[in-house]
């Protein structure tokens, strides 16, 4: 079965202040797929996610990213979001004074406007929110508070997935959404993510723990090391990484590199 290619990353190199972080990434994500990216601290996982959503601090020095046939790197941050790219942040920002529901309705309506659809009024939006809240078992009071302000670590993560549920992105990137979640929250969040999955969208899940992948089952697992994807495999690779760590993958990759040169 050949499905539509959603995202194609070609030889992507990016860095900050002249320091290289991503050193040539190639990755293809088709509709209906779930990809997991694992890798040691500081290997560039979050940088990859941030570059995909358009964080301006990072300079892309080489490579190309095509999303639904369009040049992703050429789009503004807000247009990427409105085209359906969503990042659940590793460290969601606290926004004092901005009410959660107000914020989310503004975001939701911006996306509808972009697609030429009618905006939702407060009443209809509240109905939508209530339905999505049930799925994620989010305490209703969280949305009445300013965005993320004073939220616990786990609440912030759940709020990210809640936003994802409301915005229904085509390409969702989850950056360590599992860290800081207790076991029950992890299950609810994973169930929420799975419910959003369909044949027209895709998910990239960044994690350190194979535990999450018991609930969100990936089609592919990739290892990012020092700015490069050095190994890809099926879900069993995650189990192996959990057991054996990264050293063997690194050794394997450097011997292949040595052979090649």
């Amino acid at each position: 079965m050949s499905s539509e290619t959603l995202l194609e990353i070609n030889k992507l190199k990016a860095g900050i202040n002249g320091q290289a972080i991503l050193k040539g990434i190639d990755l293809t994500v088709n509709a209906g797929e779930v990809h997991a990216i694992m890798g040691p601290n500081g290997s560039g996982k979050s940088t990859l996610a941030q570059v995909l959503v358009g964080r301006e601090e990072y300079e892309v020095s080489e490579g190309k990213v095509t999303y639904q046939g369009k040049d992703l790197l050429d789009m503004s941050v807000e247009d990427r979001a409105r085209e359906g790219v969503f990042l659940a942040f590793q460290y969601p920002v606290e926004i004092p004074g901005v009410n959660g529901t107000y914020f989310l309705r503004a975001a939701y309506n911006e996306q509808r406007k972009y697609r030429g659809e009618e905006e939702l009024d407060a009443v209809d939006f509240l109905a939508l929110v209530k339905e999505k809240m049930k799925v994620l078992e989010l305490p209703p009071t969280l949305l009445q508070r300013p965005v993320n302000e004073g939220f616990s670590g786990g609440e912030k993560k759940r709020n990210e997935i809640f936003q994802m549920a409301v915005l229904e992105p085509t390409l969702a990137i989850l950056d360590e959404t599992d860290s800081g979640l207790d076991i029950d929250a992890l299950k609810t969040v994973a169930e929420g993510v799975n419910k959003l999955k369909n044949s027209r969208n895709a998910q990239i899940v960044i994690t350190h723990y194979q535990r999450l992948l018991n609930y969100i089952v990936p089609d592919f697992v990739h290892v990012l090391y020092d700015g490069k994807l050095i190994k890809s495999g099926g879900r069993e690779l995650a189990l192996e990484l959990e057991e054996r760590g990264y050293d063997w993958v690194v050794a394997e990759a450097s011997s292949t590199a040595a052979l090649a040169s």
Partner: peptide, 11 residues
């Protein structure tokens, strides 16, 4: 915070 809002589609 500006980036966070933009990343959700708000101009």
């Amino acid at each position: 915070a500006v980036f966070y809002l933009r990343a959700r589609g708000i101009p």
